[in-house]
Amino acid sequence: MARGGIQVTKAETIRGSCRCGAVQWHLKRMPESATVCNCTACHRYGALWAYDFEGDGIQVLGPTRTYTQGRWVEFHFCSVCGCVAYWRGLKDSENGRRPMGVNLRMADLDSVAQIPIVRHNGLTATEDLPQDGRCVTDYWF
């Protein structure tokens, strides 16, 4: 499918792992977008998030340590190399599923390069900013 003149390919799955390989995630579907957030946590982590639900679209494995932020999310880090791998909601959503986000920076660039970016203002509000045509590859430096 073409998006802004860029050819977007549909992969069946995307896989990611931390630097040492102890923590891995598997995203069953190609996400429609990836989110870059400017909240105090995401800004520091430098993550690019893709979302789905635990046990549905996202599978994770490997030992992690967690940091709980507020009453809604816990961030999971590799307990060996320290990479931020994913976040997990502390409560089920209205549909009874647990939301999660995986850090696309743990995937190979070729598998995620053309995913469009959504910029989320989580610092001063909780809103998405207008899309500007950038994709994951534009943030990969």
Rank of each mutant, 00 (worst) to 15 (best):
54 E>Y: 11
3 R>H: 12
35 T>D: 09
118 V>E: 13
111 S>C: 05
15 R>A: 13
84 V>A: 14
123 L>S: 10
30 M>V: 06
24 Q>H: 11
46 G>T: 05
123 L>Q: 11
65 R>E: 12
12 E>T: 11
79 S>G: 03
114 Q>R: 15
140 W>E: 07
80 V>M: 08
51 Y>A: 01
75 F>Y: 14
51 Y>K: 01
23 V>N: 02
71 R>G: 07
117 I>L: 08
26 H>T: 08
106 M>T: 07
66 T>N: 08
139 Y>L: 14
104 L>C: 05
43 H>D: 08
66 T>M: 06
99 P>F: 06
118 V>A: 05
129 L>Y: 03
138 D>E: 07
92 D>G: 03
29 R>T: 14
71 R>C: 05
72 W>Q: 07
97 R>E: 10
30 M>T: 13
30 M>G: 04
138 D>L: 04
88 R>H: 08
58 I>R: 03
84 V>H: 14
5 G>Q: 08
138 D>F: 11
91 K>Q: 15
62 G>S: 02
51 Y>I: 00
21 G>M: 10
111 S>N: 06
88 R>I: 00
24 Q>W: 08
64 T>N: 05
89 G>A: 15
18 C>I: 05
121 N>W: 06
17 S>N: 10
47 A>W: 07
134 R>L: 13
138 D>C: 04
61 L>S: 15
132 D>I: 09
96 G>Y: 05
60 V>E: 01
32 E>K: 11
48 L>E: 01
90 L>H: 01
110 D>M: 09
18 C>W: 01
113 A>P: 06
71 R>F: 10
123 L>M: 12
24 Q>F: 02
19 R>G: 12
95 N>I: 11
104 L>K: 04
107 A>Q: 03
3 R>T: 11
17 S>A: 14
135 C>F: 10
126 T>C: 14
42 C>P: 03
41 A>V: 13
60 V>I: 04
17 S>Y: 06
30 M>S: 08
124 T>F: 13
15 R>Y: 11
42 C>Q: 00
104 L>G: 03
70 G>T: 01
16 G>C: 06
95 N>P: 01
122 G>F: 00
81 C>Y: 05
136 V>K: 06
128 D>A: 10
57 G>N: 02
130 P>Y: 09
67 Y>H: 08
69 Q>R: 12
83 C>I: 07
50 A>M: 04
10 K>W: 13
49 W>T: 00
11 A>T: 07
67 Y>E: 00
108 D>F: 06
16 G>E: 03
74 E>P: 00
32 E>I: 02
108 D>V: 05
59 Q>I: 13
78 C>M: 12
